[in-house]
């Protein structure tokens, strides 16, 4: 391990401070005794307790959880199917267009995605609520799943599938008993990624949610407008924990595949 020069140490520290100092301050103040957010008066976990008594927040958390689980499951199924076709089907007519269109939503401004989905839901006369948020989240996060899964699929030895067919499997059986178990780490990490994305989305949810369903980020945003309470700090700390956990397990499950591959 090389020792960093003083210049590199300073730039690195400044960079990390720039990125993480605000979050660190938020986490510290979530344990503040005082009701005033900016004045430290001692350590306490009482705001976490308050949080779990707040009906509105609990209700929003439940909505967010349901949206996250259902939309990322939907996105994972669709994204894996898209990845399968992109990698396996060879050169079919419109392949380039299709793969371009799969990746485009990754760079699409969220406002536009949200607005266009809103217009779609209005024009086909769907009542906005939990279902529409789920659909919207599945739409944008399936692209991420597709990227993750197709990078794994492209390293997949196709003769494994052929071996399964040769040994008596139907195509469907071969997919579930050979392909899926082998690409599972990528599929799981795709699911975790889309769950994380769904968890912290505010813009698209604001466009597609109706009065009946409010997600946690929406709830936080609207209460911040009335002034930042220490409760929000506590809630944000929990969210940061969840997102960190999601991202770390996603990267671990991809990494595990890599190390196992190196053993070969």
């Amino acid at each position: 391990m090389r020792k960093l020069s003083w210049f590199n140490t300073v730039t690195l520290s400044l960079g990390f401070a720039f990125l993480y100092l605000p979050i660190l301050i938020l986490i510290i103040f979530s344990f503040n005794e005082s009701k005033l957010v900016t004045v430290w008066s001692g350590f306490s976990v009482k705001w976490y307790g308050e949080l779990f008594k707040n009906e509105a927040f609990l209700e929003a958390a439940w909505v967010t959880l349901r949206v996250g689980i259902i939309s990322s499951t939907l996105a994972t199924v669709l994204g894996t199917m898209a990845a399968f076709v992109l990698v396996r089907a060879g050169k079919f007519l419109g392949r380039t267009l299709f793969s371009g269109m799969i990746y485009a939503p990754l760079v699409m401004p969220e406002v536009i995605t949200g607005l266009s989905l809103l217009l779609l839901f209005i024009s086909i006369g769907v009542d906005r609520g939990l279902m529409t948020i789920i659909l919207a989240h599945a739409t944008f996060s399936m692209c991420y799943v597709c990227v993750v899964v197709s990078s794994r699929m492209s390293q997949f030895d196709e003769s494994l599938d052929e071996a399964a067919l040769d040994l008596g499997c139907t195509r469907l059986d071969a997919f579930f008993s050979v392909t899926l178990p082998i690409i599972a780490p990528a599929v799981i990490s795709g699911w975790l990624l889309s769950f994380t994305l769904s968890l912290d989305d505010l813009v698209i949810a604001s466009f597609t949610a109706g009065p009946s369903a409010t997600t946690l980020p929406m709830q936080i945003f609207s209460s911040v407008k009335l002034g930042v309470s220490p409760e929000i700090n506590a809630l944000s700390t929990i969210l940061i924990g969840l997102v960190t956990l999601g991202v770390i397990s996603a990267s671990l499950s991809t990494k595990r595949v890599k190390t196992r591959k190196n053993l070969h």
Partner: peptide
């Protein structure tokens, strides 16, 4: 006649052993 319906089995060059 598809591969899974033939009285034939194949040993692949890469062996294609199921890693899991």
């Amino acid at each position: 006649v598809p591969a899974n319906k033939r009285p034939v089995n194949m040993m692949f060059q890469s062996y294609a052993l199921f890693p899991h």
